[in-house]
Amino acid sequence: MTTTAPAVRHATGPKVAPTRHPFRWLAAAGVLLLLAMAANSLVTNPAWEWEVVGQYLFAPSVLRAVLLTLELTALGTVFGFLLGGVLAVMRLSPNPLLSSVAWGYVWVFRAVPLILQLLFWYNLALLYPRLSFGIPFGPSFFSVGTMDLIGPVTAAALGLALHQGAYAAEIVRGGLLAVDPGQREAAAALGIPRVRRFFRIILPQAMRSIVPNAGNEIIGLVKGTSVVYIMALPELFYQVQVIYMRNGRVVALLLVAALWYLALTTVMSVVQHYIERHYGRGR
């Protein structure tokens, strides 16, 4: 396997002529022309207002908004996937109650639009003005006002996580089902304890199919945080709106937001590549 065969020259016989692809060249020329037109318009059309874009791209208020967008994404991802993991395991449980509850959760939270869910959590205080903690159906130890406990950021993170949990549940479940049943069997036959079996044998293999889908979801979530603008939280999308309402530079500021979303998802795609490589080891 270490030696490579020397290139063989066939001295005799007819030569094989390479096939020509004139239409490929034509199509390529057409695409190139369109690209050039687009680039030209981006540079020469003054309405893009690139100098305004440059002025706001790293403005402190915009950077703070980017940070909040990242924070909401992180909270939505971590708690969404923790919840999704639990739901997936419940759904696969032989216990019909656990499995039905998980199914019901996914059913409800996938059906209701995210924007509606967010408004719902934001207005939770209308439904339950006070939250009390104690023994179920028994005495309460202490209670707090819902508004004090669930501020707008918590409500947004909660809404994103609960919504994300429903999708994450299906992704994790799909990943767990994709692992060869023989792996579970071999681990059981070796006497490996149940929890260890899950975390050492099954989950790392499930991650191979979970990661690409999860990457999709998390990138979706970065942009999903823009829905939070209806709760008047100064995340990226809301913040640029505030600025362009004030100065009227609509296109430039939408461009600022677009560039940041592009940057964030690019970083995530790179991270995803390395995570996939990690879980792909041995293949």
Binding site: A186, A187, A189, G191, P204, Q205, G282
Partner: peptide, 18 residues
């Protein structure tokens, strides 16, 4: 615990690929 006293070799090996 009982299974640790009983080795099992599968037709499809079922080695842990990762």
């Amino acid at each position: 615990r009982q299974r640790t006293k009983i080795g099992f070799v599968f037709q499809n090996f079922n080695l842990f690929p990762h």
